[in-house]
């Protein structure tokens, strides 16, 4: 009996290993290929697809950086992502505090409004947003990019913040109210410090979404100096150059910051994704 069970388990384990290894190789294989091909000259890539680099051909990176104007794209991406993430997180925390702790009836209505936003696709507002921004003359400006980033980041961040702050015992802030502290003071000195774990998740999450965003920058800007990394990478590696070495170098430069970011924040990010789906 017991040996039968053990045998069955061995079968399960074997199947598990096969599935896991196939999946991991499929996931990581292309990325490894991308990484080492990016230091091979164009003709080496074509001649020997799998071959490891014979020399470390850094010229790909130097040329790609200059030809694709990666410096300005990178700066823009950093600017959009940082500013939008900071604003989204602060506004979401403030609103989350309001919705969770001020017992107003209207909070439920507003909260529902934001939650519905999780289902809204960017494309359903693109046309009117474009028209609106043109009329207000904020199209082709940094403000015109950051506003939609913030607006589309709010639903998920507010969801995280509100459900977290609801879990904070009322007694904590009630004591502060009796001591005569203002609500804004409580927000700053009590709520924000307690929220540190969820703030980390919100920051990472929102930064990642903003960093990889494509369509707003694509439609709402036309100046080359305002474009972000995904838009620039698409224009360059997706069309302008047929030199594979350059293409690969551009892809690596666009990917590496996020992969490093991911390796450092893996736990928090994974927990964040999970937290989003936890309380339903």
């Amino acid at each position: 009996m017991s040996s039968e069970i053990r045998q069955k388990n061995v079968g399960w384990n074997l199947a598990a290993y096969i599935i896991m290894i196939i999946f991991t190789v499929l996931t990581v294989g292309p990325l490894v290929w991308l990484l080492y091909s990016s230091v091979k000259p164009h003709f080496d890539i074509i001649r020997n697809v799998f071959g490891l680099p014979k020399t470390f051909y850094v010229q790909n990176y130097v040329q790609a950086w200059n030809l694709a104007h990666l410096g300005i794209l990178m700066l823009n991406s950093i600017f959009y992502s940082t500013v939008a993430t900071a604003i989204t997180t602060l506004l979401a925390l403030a609103a989350g505090y309001g919705f969770a702790k001020f017992k107003y009836k209207i909070s439920g209505f507003f909260y529902f409004f934001f939650i519905m936003g999780l289902l809204i696709t960017v494309h359903s507002v693109l046309v009117p947003l474009f028209v609106m921004e043109t009329r207000l003359r904020i199209d082709d400006t940094r403000l015109g990019v950051i506003l939609p980033y913030v607006a589309f980041g709010l639903p998920f961040s507010i969801y995280l913040a509100t459900s977290y702050i609801r879990g904070i015992p009322d007694s904590l802030e009630a004591a502060a109210v009796i001591d005569g502290a203002s609500y804004l003071r409580i927000f700053k000195d009590i709520i924000i410090p307690i929220c540190t774990p969820v703030v980390a998740t919100m920051l990472i999450f929102s930064f990642l979404a903003n960093w990889n965003e494509l369509i707003f920058v694509l439609t709402l800007t036309s100046k080359a100096t305002l474009r972000s990394l995904p838009v620039g990478v698409l224009a360059f590696a997706g069309g302008k150059t047929r030199n594979y070495g350059l293409q690969f170098a551009v892809l690596v430069i666009a990917t590496l910051p996020m992969i490093m970011f991911y390796v450092f924040s893996h736990n928090q990010l994974a927990r964040g994704f999970a937290a989003g789906a936890l309380k339903e």
Binding site: A94, V125, A151
Partner: peptide
Amino acid sequence: VLTGPAILIYAFIIIFPI
């Protein structure tokens, strides 16, 4: 003050355009 800014931006960029 706490909830206003988020609601305004959201209404302006998402609800109104829809």
